[in-house]
């Protein structure tokens, strides 16, 4: 029983375990309220709450009242913070779903090439037009195109479809990666190249109110779907033949999960650019804290991912006047975090 201490967090005390689970689920709310108050114009939490209340319940926008607090909270900071929460939740939960269906704790939703495709689409438009809307649409479209290509090619091989799909996904991903490098090579080093590089490292600095609705709809629909199949994800993670023996149709269900996850990742990347590590680190962290059962893991990863990206983005936004890209930050914070998690608790997977 000498190992018990190491697993305190994981399974041994159901009541603490439940408390921790609910703490994780509620974590984004206080974080968001705190973050909405942070910035060059500091706002105390109670004023943030009042502004949010007005915005959500009484809908003051029609009242035409020139209220600085209200405007800063709802017009300037809320879109960015909502995007951080949604994108963080997206990347984390799709990472969890992919780790489950691919039975591999070392993959995230980029394994089928969605991020690489999106990166290429964005780079292409930054090079051709520079119009932010074009960049977003192209990122989304090429992200989907990459996965669709991988899927179509893998259908040509009848045996072991998922294995082939993974392999082809990696290949398509590196193909688009090379195309992106080519675009960077021919891009103007003073103007376009920095824009491409910056986009590829991810940022929420340019999020506008118009970005939020599509992001919210696709993200929430995807999260709802993954939550709905939470029990089936447990069964799928046993492998195809056991899932079949237990009455699931693994091929169809995995395809659905891939479709939803790809849409979620593509829309996230199209808004924020490429943000690495969240989809890999957060599922591990969540598994350490609440265990591998997807009934708890799915909600926990959504909320933990949302909290993580919000915290990182708030740091990036408030610590420096020139914002460092998020992709850099998530790696710098994410790698040590993952190392600590693996040291503290080894039982989440294996």
């Amino acid at each position: 029983m000498h190992r018990t201490n190491r697993r305190l967090l994981a399974w041994d005390r159901p009541r603490q375990q439940a408390a921790l689970y609910w703490l994780i689920l509620l974590l984004p709310l206080p974080l968001a309220i705190y973050a909405l108050g942070l910035g060059r114009y500091a706002i105390p939490p109670q004023d943030v709450v009042r502004a949010l209340y007005d915005y959500l319940v009484t809908s003051r926008e029609a009242a035409f009242e020139p209220d600085v607090v209200y405007n800063v909270v709802t017009r300037i900071r809320l879109p960015r913070i909502a995007a951080a929460l949604l994108i963080g939740g997206n990347l984390a939960v799709t990472g969890t779903a992919f780790q489950g269906i691919f039975r591999n704790p070392l993959v995230d939703s980029n394994i089928l090439g969605v991020t690489s495709g999106a990166g290429f689409g964005a780079a292409l438009m930054l090079l051709l037009t520079g119009n932010p809307l074009h960049v977003q649409v192209a990122a989304f479209g090429f992200g989907l195109l990459a996965v669709l290509t991988a899927y179509t090619i893998s259908r040509l091989y009848a045996s072991a479809p998922l294995l082939v799909l993974t392999l082809v996904g990696i290949l398509v991903g590196s193909f688009f990666g090379s195309l992106t490098s080519l675009l960077k090579y021919i891009a103007d080093p003073l103007d376009t190249l920095p824009a491409i590089t910056y986009w590829l490292l991810g940022s929420l600095a340019d999020v506008t109110r118009g970005d939020v609705p599509l992001l919210a709809v696709l993200s929430l629909a995807g999260m709802l779907f993954l939550w709905a199949v939470r029990w089936r994800l447990n069964v799928l993670s046993l492998g195809d033949s056991e899932a079949l023996a237990l009455g699931l149709n693994p091929t169809r269900l995995k395809l659905l999960i891939i479709v939803f996850s790809t849409l979620m990742t593509a829309v996230a990347v199209s808004v924020s650019g490429v943000i690495g590590w969240v989809g890999l680190v957060i599922p591990h962290a969540a598994r350490t804290l609440v265990g591998p059962d997807h009934r708890r893991l799915i909600p926990a990863t959504i909320m933990l991912g949302a909290s993580f990206l919000l915290a990182i983005d708030t740091l990036a936004r408030t610590l420096w006047s020139s914002e460092p890209p998020l992709g850099v930050f998530t790696g710098i914070v994410g790698v040590p975090l993952l190392l600590v998690i693996l040291r503290v608790n080894k039982t989440g997977w294996r």
Binding site: W11, G100, R103, N104, P105, A228, V229, R230, W231, R232, N234, V235, S237, L238, E242, L246, G247, L248, R287, G291, P292, D293, R295, T347, G348, W349, R350
Partner: peptide, 28 residues
């Protein structure tokens, strides 16, 4: 033989046997 990737509890593994009896999208 059976090689699970994730460390489910014994109870959860046995519970997976209930899967065919669950209604669509339901949990045990």
């Amino acid at each position: 033989t059976h090689a699970p990737v994730f460390a489910y509890t014994v109870h959860d593994v046995v519970m997976m046997g209930r899967t065919p009896h669950l209604r669509l999208l339901a949990t045990p």
